[in-house]
Design a protein around this nucleic acid. Sequence first.
DNA 1: TTGACAACATACCCGGTAGTATGTTCCTCT
DNA 2: AGAGGAACATACTACCGGGTATGTTGTCAA
Lengths: 216, 216
Amino acid sequence: MSASVSANSVRSVQEDILNAAAQCFMDRGYAATSIDDVARSLGATKGRIYHHYRSKADLFFDVYRHGMQMNFDVLSPIAAQSLPTPEKLQRMTKAHCLAMINTLPFQRCVWEGVELLKRGATTPEQRDVLLELQAMRDNYSEIFREVLEQAKAEGVAHFESSSIALQLMFMSLNSPLFWFQRREGQNDTTIDQIASQCAIFALRGLGLKEDLITDV
Amino acid sequence: MSASVSANSVRSVQEDILNAAAQCFMDRGYAATSIDDVARSLGATKGRIYHHYRSKADLFFDVYRHGMQMNFDVLSPIAAQSLPTPEKLQRMTKAHCLAMINTLPFQRCVWEGVELLKRGATTPEQRDVLLELQAMRDNYSEIFREVLEQAKAEGVAHFESSSIALQLMFMSLNSPLFWFQRREGQNDTTIDQIASQCAIFALRGLGLKEDLITDV
DNA sequence: TTGACAACATACCCGGTAGTATGTTCCTCT
DNA sequence: AGAGGAACATACTACCGGGTATGTTGTCAA
């Protein structure tokens, strides 16, 4: 039992740090967040964090990885289903958008991680990790791209460039990252409706006919 | 003549600093950009910048203001025209998207300025300036909101929440800020086509009928 | 019991950066 | 011509934040 308790507490501590870090990185951005900030929000000191992570970048990257993993956990089951393309696309967009809202701090870190790689102000070591994470994100994006192109091939979606369409779709679905904020009396239904509006906007934008957009 | 030359060179110097600053802030983000970075990209030193701006925040805010001013300069003439709502909306969306691409570094600073205010990690003095700039941006947004609601009233657009629709529209039109990059052999026509795809996506997302979307 | 180690806290170092104080050059105005 | 100021560059200070080195406490295993 003691081993189990130990393992549990270890996992719990790690997740506490991850959650606090995600929140801090979201609140102030990567560069403006200090390890002391994260530690303070945990009621702890630097020592706690540097005992579990080798550097600030390492911590940030783990938040990134965690965020992407949660996305895969949500999307993979849906992508594996055998469904008509329009309905599959609907479910995927809605689920992705919901995931953005439900794990918002982590997804903001994913976003900033992508920006960090583009800026390129990293050590070669860090860059390797970021490239690996980027590949993880590309794989995720690829799931959508395949369905998108199938929809286009079936004539249910209409767009010129697949790449741009994909970007626009993700921007719409990710948009709550930048304007959503929890309010009083906001239950799951409210959030569900917000995600629906984003998904509908994206599906319309992709050229899906109105009668194909149902029960989103 | 000498006075005129002096005035010109002053204006030119100010704009040189603004351009360099916008580029640096875009490349590394506000927090990670040092005044030395901006100065170095000008082939100068700190002294040059602190002679014209009182602080790093002041410089950043001026880039923000400059970016918004350029947006107004582009949009105001179109908004003043008397046109059928769908066509007005088309021209506005397209023009806004083009402005995003053409003044990209400045618009990225506007974006980060908005984030900076939301984070709230500023001195009261800085916060006042940011609030004023935010008001400027809200006014700009209001121009779109009015046309959007008119389009809804006329039955040519369909969405639930105006606020969310507005956010989604802007996210689509602003999206090139995050994925556009200049390439070889990319002329104005190419950029125009990119802006068109974004505008069409947004207009479709807003529920405009396909036959109302023409020549974007 | 004790030794070893995990899980931290504390104290410290050092590089980078915002901001300032001062020096220098040229230009303009009288 | 020379006084004054604009437009910088240079040199410096103070502080903050990442990272490390070391101290402390509890726990478990032999």
